[in-house]
Each structure stands twice: as structure tokens, then as C-alpha cells.
Design a protein around this nucleic acid. Structure first.
Lengths: 71, 71
DNA sequence: GAAAAAACGAAGCTTAACTCTGTTAAATAC
DNA sequence: GTATTTAACAGAGTTAAGCTTCGTTTTTTC
């Protein structure tokens, strides 16, 4: 199975799209660079815990929901 | 509210205790040091994504369940 | 086919994650 | 009530993941 980073990235991309946000808008709101958002969504790296919190807050979700994906 | 690191640590400690594992046993199984397990449980730091996967695997849980805690 | 959005590459920085060693404190057992 | 085990805690060092910046290419959308 794909790595957690990959699955998380796909999940994030999906959640962002649902909300009609661009990577740039999410980057601004989370105070991350657009490049970081891109890297996270492509599974290049997984965000640190502090950024997990920021991302969930911007998407108005519990952190748990960011990890809600099929096996 | 407590930081995500703190809440995660409390959750991990609880899940480990449920299974009757010591920090040392969890450390061995995840190939982390006992000190890292202790630091994670106390909210000193949050594990990286690769270690999140290992921890979930050892506890026989989905990663999502590690983030299942009250607000 | 222009414009916007995202993928991709490479290189450098920062700092959090992780380790090691050692000491203290708390819990469990005997 | 003291051994033994377990966990908290401190400090110091390493490493590598996360993050950034800049620039280019590809894809999407309009």
C-alpha cells in the first residue's frame, strides 16, 4: 500500500478541492509556502504536528479527519 | 486547549496501556528508543509520519485512531 | 492560446525529531 | 519496606525531515 505520506497528501488535496481553495490560498491561510502545500499533497513529505493543527483549523476539521482514508 | 502533541501523547499512552505494553516493549517493536516513546507520550514532540505508521501498525490500529480524542 | 494553477527540480537552511547517557521518582511486587 | 521495574526528566549531540526560495515546465481551465 501507498505510504502514509502519499495517502495523506491525496486526502488533503481532496479536502482542499472540496472547499474550492487553491494551493496558494491554503498556503496563505496556514502560513506555509505554496511549495510546502504542493509537496505535502504529492506525498514528498508529511507536515509536522504544529502544521497538522493549522491545516485542520483552516479546513475546519478535526485532525483525525485528515487521516480518514481507505486502506 | 492542549496542543496536538500533548493530546496525541495522552492518547498513545492510553492505547499502549490498554494493551499492557511497557514503553520499552513499544520502543523495541517500533524501532524507536524508549526515550522517544517517553517524549512522545509526554507531548515533548510529535512523531514523524514514518513513525506514525510504525506505531499504528504495532498497536494494530489505523493511524486515524491515534488521533481519536476529545476536543 | 492566455492565464492560472499545480508539478517538478535543485539547493540551502532550520529546527524538530531522534538518540545516548545518566539521574531521579514513582509504581508494583515480593 | 525494600527490591525491581517502569517511567519521568535533564542535558547534550546528531541527523535528516520539513520547510523555504527561485526558477522552469506541465497541466488545467477559461
Amino acid at each position: 500500500m501507498a505510504s502514509l505520506k502519499m495517502r495523506f497528501g491525496i486526502r488533503l488535496k481532496s479536502l482542499r478541492a472540496e472547499r474550492g481553495l487553491t494551493q496558494e490560498q491554503l498556503a496563505d491561510a496556514t502560513e506555509l509556502s505554496i511549495e510546502s502545500i504542493s509537496n505535502i499533497e504529492r506525498g514528498i513529505f508529511g507536515p509536522r504536528f504544529d502544521n497538522l493543527e493549522k491545516i485542520a483549523a483552516v479546513l475546519n476539521l478535526e485532525v483525525m479527519q485528515l487521516f480518514e482514508f481507505k486502506k
